[in-house]
Amino acid sequence: MLLLLPPSEGKSAPSRGAPVDLSTLSGPTLTDARERLLDELAAVSARPDAPELLGVGAGVAAEVRRNTALRTAHAAPAARVYSGVLYAAARLPELTGTARRRAGQSVRIFSGLWGVLAPGDRVPAYRLSMGADLPGTGRLGAFWRDRLGGVLDEQASGDVVVDCRSAAYAAAWRPPRAAEHVLVQVVREQNGRRQVVSHNAKHARGLLTHHLLTRTGRPPRTAEELAGAAEELRADGTVQAVELAPASGGRRTLTLVERP
């Protein structure tokens, strides 16, 4: 199982800890690309028009200024730095034993700045989305798409890829044909009609992530095994139904139906 997560806009800035050491991050072949983006992000974030260039509002100006000193900022495991709805439900920092080892092997977090991270990779809090278009680098999705295959393709081949990413982050890497690619979708059904949800979708994907990492038995290796594991969420009322659609466009869709 390879479990793909987006980052979160919400981040907890570490108050202590050594700065990021790029040589220790997973995917060492990405070091040069990370160096390049750290330098460009620092330069862009020092400009008066930085919020506009990064596609953020003036309300996060302090976070943008923080980008200018990322090489010396305190760093902590990515599982603790990302603090949004999905991560609150996934509870990655609480994992121990087998579940923690499984997360280290299976979970990969996509990032506009770092490309892809494992939960234990130590990084500072930053502000940069995959949808950004930097003056020197261009669209980050395209920038990383040329580089992430060498890091992820081999691990994904012959396994099931559980894709909880949003569209911007999905653009940075597409699983190879040798992998079973399953997109996780969350809908709410009310009065016979279904509606895709956004905020609650993050929560549901986080709950699924936690369940896949902590359940007994081996991790799923096929789409059908993944659907069977997701069905276990019905027992505690987390979801109303779980549906696995036939393959379309090289991937399958696992739909979690929320209770109204």
Rank of each mutant, 00 (worst) to 15 (best):
M1P: 15
L3C: 09
P6W: 03
P7T: 05
E9N: 13
G10T: 14
S12Y: 00
A13L: 08
P14T: 13
P14H: 14
R16I: 01
G17Y: 03
V20K: 00
D21N: 14
T24D: 10
G27Q: 06
P28T: 12
L30K: 12
T31N: 15
T31M: 15
E35H: 15
R36I: 02
L37F: 11
V44M: 07
A46P: 01
P51V: 00
P51M: 01
P51Q: 06
P51I: 00
L54W: 04
V56I: 01
G57K: 01
A58G: 15
A61E: 11
A61S: 07
A62S: 15
A62E: 15
N67H: 08
T68V: 09
T68N: 08
R71P: 08
A73R: 07
P77F: 04
Y82L: 09
L86M: 13
L86H: 06
A90P: 07
R91E: 15
R101Y: 09
R101C: 03
G104K: 03
V107A: 01
R108I: 03
I109C: 06
L117C: 00
A118T: 08
A118W: 03
P119G: 02
G120F: 03
D121V: 03
A125E: 06
A125I: 02
S129H: 03
M130S: 11
G136E: 15
G136K: 12
T137P: 02
G138Q: 06
G141W: 09
R147M: 05
G149S: 08
Q155Y: 02
A156R: 01
V160Y: 01
R165H: 04
A167L: 11
A167Y: 01
A170F: 04
A171R: 13
W173D: 12
P175Y: 01
P176F: 02
R177Y: 08
A179Q: 04
V182R: 06
E189V: 14
A201R: 10
H203S: 13
G206M: 11
H211D: 13
T214Q: 06
R215P: 12
R215T: 13
R218G: 14
E225D: 11
A227V: 08
G237H: 15
Q240K: 15
V242D: 09
V242I: 13
A245C: 03
A247N: 00
G250E: 12
R251S: 05
R252S: 01
T253I: 10
E258F: 00
E258G: 00
